[in-house]
Amino acid sequence: MNMQSVVSVEKVVRRFGSGTTEVVAVKDISLEVVPGEVVLIMGPSGSGKTTLLSMLGGLLRPSEGRIQIGEDDLTLMDESQLPNIRLQHIGFIFQDFNLLSALTTLDNVALVAQLTGISRKESRKKAKVLLEQLGLGQRLDFLPHKLSGGEKQRVAIARALVNKPDMILADEPTANLDSHHGRETMRLLREVAKQEKRSVVIVSHDERIKEIADRVLWLEDGEFKDMVEMAVDPVCGMSIDILHAPATADFEGTKYYFCANGCRHEFLAAPNSFLQVDHE
């Protein structure tokens, strides 16, 4: 492991099933992430992104290889030790925000701090400071359903940060946000990485995140491959490797790439409807 690395992944393999039904979701992957670095992992659906993210988060054990967070080797730990590692060293940000619907903004963040054993008063104080820093001082007593998508994601970011983790794992953090809130979330994640020297690993299809990433990795068939030029299928939104696009179409002088012929046919039937949606 590089002495500077927060996360070190060495020759990790993850298999599901056995014998003839065996599927290798992640193949011999190695990765080092240093403090303050933003790493974006992209790739088509089924490429192994979620499996890799689950293993990095200590939620899934690799079949082979080693994952180390700081000094802690996750692969050597038993199940009872992993919750503490997740609580203290990893912050999670989810696509659907996944806030606790019965708790207020403040309680959603404070609860995670309280799980570490600090008092309710202290945890609420920490949560309040963090939420105010993220511009949610006027929303402390709001329930999640009263918040906008962007506000929810900021609460989720506060929750991920409240225990000062070494690494933030973000799963499609901009997928349910409009472009304005998506950019705001990206800016926040970069700030977290650069100002607080936390490693941020993002799994996403969103091309815009490339703007804030220090490194972009392309995962396909369970392996990191060279980064390729990508396009977005205007019909289903999937990221497409333009060199291996299953289908393409020209419309008003622009070339569009599709994940399958079905999407291409749908597009050609009413191209403006997809382009209008895209422009919104």
Partner: peptide, 16 residues
């Protein structure tokens, strides 16, 4: 169920 799953992922133990 999904919220309990989130809590578990974040680091809550079964006892919590």
């Amino acid at each position: 169920r999904s919220e309990y799953g989130v809590l578990k992922a974040i680091g809550a133990k079964n006892i919590h």
